[in-house]
Design a protein around this nucleic acid. Sequence first.
DNA 1: ATTATCGACTCAGAAAAATTTTG
DNA 2: GCAAAATTTTTCTGAGTCGATAA
Length: 835
Amino acid sequence: MSEQPLRRRASVKAAEVLKSSDNDDMDRDSSDSSDDFDAPKSSSAKKATKASHSKAEVSDSDDDVPLSARKQSKPTAANGNVPQNKRAANGSSRNSAANDDNGNDSETSDAPVTKKSKTAAEKKVDDENENGDNESDEDDDDVPLSKKKANGDVKAKKTPVGKKDTAAKRKLKVEESAVTPAKKRKTPAIKKSGTPVKNEKKGEDDDNDENADEEEEEEDQFAWWKDGALDTSEKWKTMEHQGPVFPPAYVPHGIKMKYNGAPIELEPDSEEVATFFAGIIGTDYEQNKTFCANFFRDFLTVLKKQKKTCPIKEFAKCDFTPIYQHLQEQKELRKAMTKEQKQKIKEEKLALEEKYGWALFDGRKEKVGNFRIEPPGLFRGRGDHPKTGTLKLRVMPEQVTINIGKEAKVPEPPAGHKWGSVVHDNTVAWLATWKENVNDNIKYVLMAATSSLKGQSDLKKFEKARELKKHIAKIRRDYTDGLKDKVMATRQLSTALYFIDRLALRAGNEKGEDEADTVGCCSLRFEHVTLEPPNKVIFDFLGKDSIRYYNEVAVDEQVFKNIKIFKREPKKEGDMLFDRLNTAILNKDLTKYMTGLSAKVFRTFNASYTFQKELNSTPADGTMQEKILAYNRANRQVAILCNHQRTVSKAHTAQMGKIQDKVRGYKYERSLIKKALLEVDPKLKKKRPELLEDESDVDDDFVQRYLTGLEEKEKDRVAKALEKENEKRKAEGKAPLKELEKKKSVPTPLESLSVEKLEKKLEDMGKRIETTKLQIIDKDENKTTALGTSKINYIDPRISIAWCKKYDVDLEKIFNRSLREKFHWASHLDDDWEF
DNA sequence: ATTATCGACTCAGAAAAATTTTG
DNA sequence: GCAAAATTTTTCTGAGTCGATAA
């Protein structure tokens, strides 16, 4: 199906990229845990523990019942094999770089102890059967664990209980009040930075006129980040917009598809659907059985509604190629349009954006995002989506709900139509909404990323992640404790949290049968995780968007043991790994540490934290190129951590070869310069012995190829020039030439240049080689890694902006215009800003 | 009281379009 | 200086997360 284009990561290669510090982190961590928690393991202690819990064992028997008894194991067939064509995640053993926090916390060892002693007694410890009859080492753990666990649990629960109660009661209001203090704390920092930076900005503008234009309007812009009011429960007082734009009505082309070899006349509605299919010919979807089956089912339904009955019965007898060809022709025509025609289209598009692309929020003009209603087509699910190919119907105004200010004029629906309804809800961010027919999903027209609405929630998101920094040490202590807990549910929760924290896994909600089978942390199944003694866990599953996550990780001893337990008989393929855990439980537990804390916050935190840490390796005295390479490297580390991938372009290998040859060509040129240099000044032989060295990577074979290549290119060039000249002559009515008289200017022989000039040339060539080499490295490392997603969504932009200041790099070098606009709110900050 | 569903929004890669580089 | 190729940016919309609400 849906063959994802072949893409794959060599984990071997990835390993090279890994920081050696990873291991250190791990080691440190595990030793931490032993320091903190490991009590002497004596068999008597074991027994004692067991005994004392035997009661609990009974009462807790239901602990054995998986949360999702309802959800029996999924059909294994679907699960077992990861399609070969899915790409592998990078990295054989990457750890989240955030582990450092553990180390920093000098109190790691102290804190737990005190807490422990307090609470241990009160906590009931539940024993599970599993624990009992388990591996021999299991028992050892119990002793210290129970103690520990007890404390952890109690303290954990106690503190938050108060909070929780509030939370339970709470409606928006409570949440707000809870959030506000945090906000306030932050506000000064933001505010402080806001004003002073502005001055600086002006200074910059002086140097750089072009930017001045771009950011000049700043003064008029709504500087919401200055008031520090991040209350987003009420999003506006007044709001107006022009409504969404509907796709143009279908214009029949009259091209006949064939059925059983015979041309078939289709009525417009069916022709449109047939044309949708013709549009995917040549893609992987064409070979995808599910896609074709779903399409054909819906195609038949549409055909049935025709006035004239249609003979089409079997997909195999359909031939859409005439329509496909027509589409290709249209494409050609579009390509061949004159400049004027293209210009006209562009202007029309611009005019549309001018009208519909903006909304007024409290009088401020802000950019709307997707103001176009999605056009009909064939649903293109990703991965093995059961509904892929299903006909996505045209959305009618009657299905659309408009959200707009009470006083504002309601936009006119298309002629002859009415809006489904009109509401005035200022607690939501959407301007319009409708329900899509394929998956019954709700779609929204929302503001663009540059809008203050989005900016505010972005800032909020990153501030939340920063707040996690304050709690992370405790959270880590707690889940490390929890790894050995007697209660299976706690143990699972702790193990899951360990993965989410270390590996930046997604939470992993459960999915329905009518969706692609993908998983996240909580929804991992038996077959997604394998163990390799002594301490390696191998993850191999399809995550969001059916992107393969493959990772071999060395984990704490206890984690390894736990997975072994979680996978123990009678569990088998298709069964949930964490059968007593789901995202609701996990997130609910997390809120005890911090309001608003949920699994995804760890990803943001981890990404930004890692990024900032990685940026420290920027060479302060390096060239601009080197600095930017360091930036991109850091970015890449984050992308790898988050498993952000992209398909390798078909041309990649060829492109790599080309650019490598380019370097070799340069090297050859350099060798010529060296030779000339030595000829001109033979004394250099002694002074500069390196001039005698051969260039690596440049063999006779290559030189031959290179020279021939140059020759051919020259021939080509001359031939083209001639052709052009002749055309010109023809136009002027002159006879064509056989040959251009002007010979290429003969380059000055190197030997005739001065030593200085040669030295200069040598240096230039060296630089060129270095830059190109860096490009190669960059390109190869980027082959399967998509940097954009993390840059846009996970990395706090203030880290980048602070970095630019510190290393004197123009922001334009790392943020394109959209990014600069999107992160405008972050551009004013103190010099010493840290994530 | 759970659990299932819904609603709203963030985040995701592919594809299309625009821009820059190259030869 | 131009066309083609390569690269970057933008658009598009599907796929998650997560809290609220209904059953």
